[in-house]
Structure formats: structure tokens, C-alpha cells
């Protein structure tokens, strides 16, 4: 069906209607998009770290020993179950002092294991090895094991919960 030639008004009208359709689609996308993106990104901004929690009595820890202690996220999502748990390596240096290392290898986050007799942390994934002070002994890790803040209070050893340490480049 051949189209009739358009008058200038008709052309303007059609251009306007085209822009209207595209503009309205954009508005609809924004109306839907903003809450969706906000909802999906929201968990990132939930701050659950930076809280002091007890991991045991001071007397429970032997001087010189490095042990793994389990901590539970103090405010987990109700359906987190066992995934709210995490662990860290805790060492009693002397009567009053403790140090605590993140279990996450600084290479790519796998859980390092403490070998008591060898005095080393070893990573199962890509071969990272750390000395007892957390400095890199071998393998690909770019930096030492990250340490937790530790303190003692009321006979308890407490650590400050923190995010899984992410090694960044810039």
C-alpha cells in the first residue's frame, strides 16, 4: 500500500511520537531498574564487621601454640546456617599478648593451614607458604597474612571481626 506524501505537520508529529515512545521506554526502564539494581547491590553495603567478639578464655590458650578458633558472624542473615561461621589462626605469644591471622591466603583467598612442627602456614591451592609471623616464605602470595585486631578483656580473648581480606591492585 503506497503511503500518501506527508505534510510537514505530520512529519513533526511522527518525529514527536517516536521520541515519546523511546522516552517513555527509558522512563519505564528507570522506574524498574533503580530498585532492582539497588536491591541486588544492597548486600554489599550491609556492614556486619568491625565488632569485638570473644573467642575464648585467656587461660584456654597455651603460650606459643597456634590454634584455629571459630567465630560466628554476630548478626548473620537468619538462613546463613553454618556459612555464618568462619575461622582464624590465634597464637598466644606470652601471658598477655595474642596475635591473630586471617586464614585467607593473600594470593587468592584459600584457607591456609598451620603446621605446628614446621612452624609454617601452607596454602592448599597454589602453593603459598608463610612463616609463623605471617610473612611470605614461598609461592605466589603478594603480601603477608592479614592480622586481626586482638585484645583481652575480662579474662576473655577478643577479636574484631573483619571482611574477608581482598588483595587489590590499585
Amino acid at each position: 500500500m503506497p503511503e500518501r506524501p506527508l505534510t510537514p505537520e505530520q512529519i513533526t508529529r511522527r518525529r514527536f511520537l517516536e521520541k515519546l515512545c523511546i522516552g517513555l521506554s527509558g522512563v519505564c526502564a528507570a522506574i524498574l531498574g533503580i530498585p532492582i539494581v539497588g536491591f541486588v547491590v544492597a548486600p554489599i553495603f550491609r556492614r556486619t564487621t568491625g565488632k569485638w567478639i570473644s573467642v575464648g578464655h585467656i587461660a584456654d590458650f597455651e603460650v606459643g601454640k597456634t590454634v584455629s578458633v571459630t567465630v560466628t558472624d554476630p548478626s548473620p542473615l537468619p538462613w546463613a546456617g553454618i556459612t555464618a561461621k568462619s575461622a582464624l589462626w590465634l597464637r598466644r605469644i606470652n601471658d598477655a599478648e595474642f596475635i591473630a591471622f586471617s586464614v585467607n591466603c593473600t594470593h587468592l583467598g584459600c584457607p591456609v593451614r598451620w603446621l605446628q612442627d614446621a612452624d609454617l602456614f601452607m596454602c592448599p591451592c597454589h602453593g603459598g607458604v608463610y612463616y609463623s609471623d605471617g610473612t611470605v616464605a614461598a609461592g605466589p602470595p603478594p603480601k603477608p597474612l592479614i592480622r586481626y585486631d586482638v585484645r583481652t578483656a575480662n579474662g576473655q580473648v577478643q577479636i574484631k571481626t573483619m571482611a574477608i581480606p581482598i588483595t587489590t591492585t590499585l
Binding site: R46, T83, N104, I164, L170
Partner: peptide, 25 residues
């Protein structure tokens, strides 16, 4: 951790993947 190596937005990407700062619900 791998996403974390992306310059500038690495931290954000890492937390986007974990759904927060640690593994969890």
C-alpha cells in the same frame, strides 16, 4: 579475590560476588 584484582572497582566486585564482606546467607 580474582575480581578484587580489577583496578579501582576490585573491592566492589569482590563484595558483589560474596554478597557482602564475608560468605554468608
Amino acid at each position: 579475590e580474582q575480581a578484587g584484582r580489577v583496578p579501582f572497582i576490585g573491592d566492589f566486585l569482590a563484595q558483589f560476588i560474596l554478597g557482602g564482606t564475608t560468605i554468608g546467607g
